[in-house]
Design a protein around this nucleic acid. Structure first.
Lengths: 222, 222
DNA sequence: CTTCTACAATCAGAACACGCATGATAAATT
DNA sequence: AATTTATCATGCGTGTTCTGATTGTAGAAG
């Protein structure tokens, strides 16, 4: 998950960055609205955290600009308690959620995740596809009510595919998502995981929600 | 939120004041019980933090006085680890919650908020799961009526898991919650605590509410 | 239609990492 | 000083992940 933080208090900014970084996010930071706008344009940001009280132009102005540029990633607004009225204005101008300072990093992360999920077309952290239900919080996966015993990586693969259902996911994209940084891709781990997943989802093989597209990748359908 | 701190260690007092102030609270401080009593009478305090070991008269005495004056704002008591028995006495005399030093500012704030919310007429936090009951105020844990003797960290781990029951909690998330800032993660403290907790909850091992999800974390169920 | 080729699936064993128990040490609380 | 609690270190067992060889298959070319 790639996150942009636009926050002028460098200490807070750094602290959030560290926390999110530790939890697997790629984090870009900007200290001013202008800088934030630039980064939002240049990088493939998935979600932004914007402090409403910025030095140059207000966070609200930034959101307006971003929307004008048709940058559609979700935005979470940070407000000081004393500025809580501005949250309404921010929401009206395209922000997707808000959090009052002080907050728990945990809560922040949870909300960011929720936003990204929603942006991907899901409002609930429960991914459903036909008889398959995947709860991203409890990490429970059931097929027709039967619970699957998945390993860590099997789960990650399935979650990712379901999150982007309908899209073709290349093996490269999958490895990039599963492993940090560059990983020796001369092996067939992914194929192995896909195989195991398919078997666990339906041992009979009658139903196969993970489609193979030769030379291109996999696609989750249903 | 207007907070009164009654604490003789000026450094600690100042540090709390700064933190709470930075997070949108109005903070009044007093260094002695007498001063605290005066401020409690004169200002519209919403919640008080009182150190139990004060120089003039004890924190417990102060609470009694406040209650006698019909000042009903909630009181959170601070105790040194060595004075933990006094928590009982304090709670019996009108304190609403307590925190053992040293503590996280984050947690302090969270509890203050909870107290204020509760004072405004909301629920009191008792976590129940099957035969296990955990009272977040008295920090008593019972299993089928049998009281568990938990250490501070064992308790924290259990409370957190129960608070988020059903969710998968990674070890990272647990250490982040238990310890301040970055902590050497190359140790196995968490595993040790989990092991001890499981043994205390059910020495026979017949019931195990803390599920292990290899490579993912732990999950409290039922 | 057959052959060829590149890619995918499968399998089994090896290598590895993870979680857990246990006991030792250090640090507090009493 | 004694006791409880927290942390660290080690080794073991087991489940997970990875690898490499083999078999299977889709699609293109002949």
């Amino acid at each position: 998950m790639r996150v942009l933080i636009v926050e002028d208090e460098t200490e807070l900014s750094f602290q959030i960055k560290k926390y999110l970084g530790d939890h697997g996010c790629i984090v870009d930071t900007a200290a001013t609205g202008e800088e934030g706008l630039y980064m939002g344009r240049e990088f493939p940001i998935e979600v932004a955290i914007i402090d409403i009280g910025l030095p140059d132009f207000s966070g609200i102005e930034l959101i307006k600009q971003l929307r004008k540029d048709e940058l559609s990633f979700p935005v979470l607004v940070l407000t000081a308690r004393s500025q809580w009225q501005q949250k309404v204005e921010a929401l009206e101008n395209g922000a997707d959620d808000y959090l009052v300072k002080p907050f728990h990093n945990e809560e922040l992360l949870a909300r960011l995740k929720a936003l990204v999920r929603r942006a991907a077309g899901f409002s609930h952290p429960l991914l459903e596809a036909g008889p398959i239900k995947l709860d991203t919080i409890s990490q429970d996966v059931t097929v027709d009510g039967r619970t699957l015993e998945l390993t860590a990586y099997e789960y990650k693969v399935l979650e990712y595919l379901m999150l982007k259902r309908g899209n073709v996911i290349s093996k490269m994209a999958l490895t990039d998502h599963l492993y940090e940084q560059d990983f020796e891709r001369d092996s067939n781990v992914i194929e192995v995981f896909i195989g195991r997943l398919r078997k666990k989802i339906d041992p009979t093989g009658a139903m196969n929600p993970i489609e193979t597209l030769r030379g291109r990748g996999y696609r989750f359908t249903l």
